[in-house]
Design a protein around this nucleic acid. Sequence first.
DNA 1: CTAATTGCAAAAGCTTTGCAGCGCA
DNA 2: TGCGCTGCAAAGCTTTTGCAATTAG
Lengths: 135, 135
Amino acid sequence: MTDDAELKKAGLKVTLPRLRILELLESSDTTHLSAEDIYKRLINVGEDVGLATVYRVLTQFEQAGICIRHNFEEGHGVYELTPTDHHDHMVCVETGDIIEFKCDEIEDYQIKVAKEKGYEIVDHSMVLYVKPLKK
Amino acid sequence: MTDDAELKKAGLKVTLPRLRILELLESSDTTHLSAEDIYKRLINVGEDVGLATVYRVLTQFEQAGICIRHNFEEGHGVYELTPTDHHDHMVCVETGDIIEFKCDEIEDYQIKVAKEKGYEIVDHSMVLYVKPLKK
DNA sequence: CTAATTGCAAAAGCTTTGCAGCGCA
DNA sequence: TGCGCTGCAAAGCTTTTGCAATTAG
């Protein structure tokens, strides 16, 4: 789907700020951007955009399911395109490597545990902090 | 260990605000409090404390390992005493309720998944975002 | 005594909102 | 043309910091 169509599908008019922000999110070297990051990058390439617009657009994208906002421990939110395939992350505390993984059994147990408490799962976040096995 | 000893061990002078905040964190019906929560409770019982002090003390407690700060998706941090027994959290997206849970099976699979990738687990964080089951 | 601690107020970040003008459909 | 969208500035929130007065050890 084109960016154009993606915006229309979300009920959003196709405007320059929205297209630029969507392109930034889609570019491979720019995952996990903050609103400020996006704002600065747009300013740097000469786009006349306001920080408030960036926040508004990101919020709209999030509500439309186009992107996801993460609240890590950095004091500000970061955004990434909604992954097509769900996965969780391992972070190596020694090398900083990030390993994506998926475990159906864990997902099943999460659903089971939630149900036991009287809830159903809307979303989840799981990060494993790991170090390499000794050889 | 007494609260008094706990503070001294952390290299902190035993002051009224610190004792009161530590007591609040220890009371069973008050887990996962925000700085604002703690401040209001202290004011309500007549303690003459400043919000800035609450933030400072909580930060000191966290650095001393006395408590942990969680950044769920609420727009503010919440604190709990450092758990002696590991557990994870569910956050209800409708009510904001925080439910603690523990699932050995999930922990086992986490270890297994990490090992498959050539790692061992140092720590992890897992938060399930949930909503109540329809009755 | 004296360095740590505190309350207050001001400031600092991040994010949202009010508003008048601009622009997509 | 009309309503949505935008930039700007101001406001809102949570959290931090400067400072003079207070207090624990």
